[in-house]
Amino acid sequence: MLLGWGLALSGMIRPEKVVHFLDVTGRFDPTLACVLCAAVAVTAVGYRLIARLSRRPWCVREYDPLRNRPVDAKLVVGAVLFGMGWGLAGLCPGPALADLASGSIRIVLFVAAMVVGMMTAQRIRRPVLQLGSPSPKTRGIQSEESDQRGA
């Protein structure tokens, strides 16, 4: 609830405000930078305090170990696609869900499309998108190769 409140108060649930932030060459609204800085600062302090003071979380057995996996093409391609969608409609997953409370039909459309996108990405998984997009004909061979590499 705190998160929803924060998002609403900061104005980040208004798509046009986000688009203004990304519009650095035109009508620019730097509010999002303030939001992000404040959020990161508070979170960073909080995480450090918890690391020092708390052994285990209140509701589950242990803290997520958070392995840092290597940077790969999938990560970068994903970030590019995400940015495109974000810039287009001015919505990322958090604010989109918060906006569901408005009951707007377009938000429902956006969230539905987002869920479809996520499920599609979960289906595809690794093999298809390793360094460049192979043509459909070679895709089978490519994925076999990458399976072996992964093993």
């Binding site: 990560l75 994903g78 970030a79 495109m84 997953p93 539905a112 499309a113 479809v116 996108g117």
Partner: peptide
């Protein structure tokens, strides 16, 4: 809006985060 929803969904899943 629908197109960007799909982009955000696929992108967030692939980059494992938003």
């Amino acid at each position: 809006v629908a197109v960007s929803g799909v982009l955000v969904g696929v992108g967030a899943q692939m980059a494992s985060g938003c």
